[in-house]
């Protein structure tokens, strides 16, 4: 590392008081303006229920995306072309696709209810949004998984064989731990990114935080409230995603040093 890195890393540390100052300024504003504070507090439970939806969508989308993505990543590494080609095509198409377009697609193409064994099951919009985000998430996870698997040198397999481990044991104790360590930081980055994309679901009418904020803003119809409510939405996402990104960077640095 060069000496030039020092002031910048210092700046990161120095950013904390700065952010704290910004937060307390907002708090102070709320305290000074009693009416605004009361209105915000009134709407806070509604906003919170919206944000819970964001978290729910992000977790489900990421779970589905991870399951699909790992499978796709393994397929991408297959020696057989017929297995490899569809996975490569999937990743190519859906990595380049805007998330918003995919959310529109799943929302409008899938029916509002599905028939399973003669029963009509509702297929709500928020679940469609989950699918809309799981589709690109799987494409990204596939790339992360492929990179992680490829990062483990093949000599590790030989070495494990050399000390008498079976194929399964090698995978379990030698290869997977190394893959996971490599994949974790980008996977966390992706989670933060998918979480931020859940705000897009507001555009197809899912009751999440941004949608709740718009509801509140149109209900109260006051400029200071509009500004405050959107700032609150920004702050909520920031407080959720910033720790994740800090942790990711810590892990990356830790990984780079070994």
């Amino acid at each position: 590392m060069s000496a030039a890195a020092l002031p910048a890393r210092g700046a990161l540390r120095w950013a904390w008081p700065w952010l704290a100052a910004a937060c307390s300024a907002i708090l102070l504003w709320w305290l000074l303006d009693a009416r605004l504070t009361r209105d915000l507090l009134d709407w806070l439970p509604y906003l919170a229920s919206g944000f819970a939806m964001n978290v729910l969508i992000s977790m489900l989308a990421m779970t589905l995306g991870t399951l699909g993505g790992v499978a796709l990543g393994a397929m991408e590494l297959s020696a057989t072309r017929i297995v490899r080609a569809p996975a490569v095509a999937y990743v190519q198409v859906f990595r380049n696709a805007p998330h918003l377009v995919l959310i529109f697609a799943t929302t409008y193409i899938f029916p509002f209810e599905i028939i399973v064994a003669g029963h009509y099951l509702p297929f709500p919009d928020w679940l469609k949004a989950v699918l809309g985000l799981a589709i690109p998430a799987a494409a990204y996870v596939a790339e992360i998984a492929r990179g992680a698997i490829q990062s483990v040198p093949t000599t590790q397999w030989d070495a494990a064989k050399g000390i008498g481990l079976s194929r399964g044991q090698t995978l379990r104790w030698i290869i997977l731990p190394q893959c996971l360590r490599r994949a974790l930081p980008p996977w966390m980055n992706l989670y933060a990114s998918i979480t931020m994309s859940t705000a897009l679901a507001s555009l197809v009418g899912v009751h999440e935080l941004l949608h709740a904020a718009t509801d509140a803003s149109t209900a109260v119809r006051r400029d200071d409230f509009t500004i405050a409510i959107y700032l609150t939405v920004l702050l909520a996402f920031f407080l959720f995603c910033y720790p994740i990104s800090r942790l990711t960077r810590r892990l990356e640095r830790h990984l780079a040093r070994r």
Binding site: A192, M196, L200, A213, I227, L234, C241, Y242
Partner: peptide
Amino acid sequence: NTPTLVQLMF
């Protein structure tokens, strides 16, 4: 660390 859509709305 915040959604672009929210930034746009803001």
